[in-house]
Nucleic acid binder design. Structure first.
Lengths: 165, 165
DNA sequence: TTGTTTGCAAACCTTTTGCACGTTA
DNA sequence: TAACGTGCAAAAGGTTTGCAAACAA
């Protein structure tokens, strides 16, 4: 029902391009944390770096398997957990009972998602005012904000015109 | 680890007060949808109306059981699903693998949450600018926004001063 | 070598489903 | 009474954990 297609809103979603040096950031991050670079870690990182949208652990596992890379599903989860802790990936939750993950730039530059209730299409978006507002809110509440997640749900343009309910 | 305490930020969180007529809204909603008012539905609604923060299905089930009300866990899930579809409850997801639910006012008035990474404390907040921004974003993307969810993660004031890492 | 990573399989938890029984209108 | 709602138990995911073997440094 919910296919994660992160529609490449051509003009705005430069997701893939920006992830250029992410793989190196991960290498550095692991090393400076005194961790090793095993096969599962490398595989998951390389897989994620190639995606243009967030992916679930199962999707990553499946994707690797199809590419002939054998990695245990448990390892996929462990790698994602680790990377999330090191702030190298962002965990995203659309509320469908599955966690998704995507590369997180070192400079904190990131985006959020809109999910179409009808077709399940997922699009990424960025909004400076949104970011500013959230910083203000956290400050007002006295929180040292580390991450935040924003998910919009609604009918996308296509579904709206197809089913003018 | 994550205890849902929705700290009653006394000055701002008027959650409970505002939910005054929610029970009636639910009654009306059910009737006008041609649905019946069975025991499980009533029990879950009354339980939720008494809470000052969102609750998971398991918490609701447990809470009812402790109060001597016998309701099957499956019914709790079914009722929550139904109410969410009717827009009578809001589903909230903190990314810990458990969905939480809370009453949703008919006028669309609602709030969002901040979760403390250290103590798990949850606080609710409202912000008009945030709401406006999200409406603008959805419009810009061509989506007919139906709901949205914002969750902030970070260290709360208390934890910040206790552990000045 | 030696502690870290990994894979497998089993365990866990939350959520969903099938079905017979109970209830509402 | 006829359709709808509920409870129970089993099933279905997704995610975590224990442990022994494989591996990186």
């Amino acid at each position: 029902m919910l296919h994660t297609d992160c529609g490449p809103r051509d003009d705005e979603n430069r997701y893939r391009l920006a992830v250029g040096g992410w793989r190196e950031q991960v290498e550095t991050g692991l090393v400076s944390a005194g961790l090793r670079r095993g096969g599962a870690r490398r595989a998951v990182v390389e897989y994620l770096a190639r995606q243009d949208c967030c992916r679930s652990a199962q999707e990553i596992h499946e994707g690797l398997r199809e590419a002939g890379v054998r990695v245990g599903i448990a390892s996929v989860y462990r790698v994602l957990d680790l990377l999330a802790e090191l702030r190298l990936v962002q965990r995203v939750d659309f509320g469908d009972g599955t966690a998704r993950y995507e590369p997180l730039e070192a400079d904190g530059h990131h985006h959020h998602h809109v999910v179409c209730r009808d077709c399940g299409r997922v699009e990424a978006f960025e909004d400076a005012r949104l970011e500013d507002t959230l910083v203000d809110v956290a400050e007002r509440l006295g929180y040292a904000m580390e991450t935040h997640e924003v998910v919009l749900h609604g009918a996308c343009g296509t579904c709206r015109s197809e089913a003018p309910a």
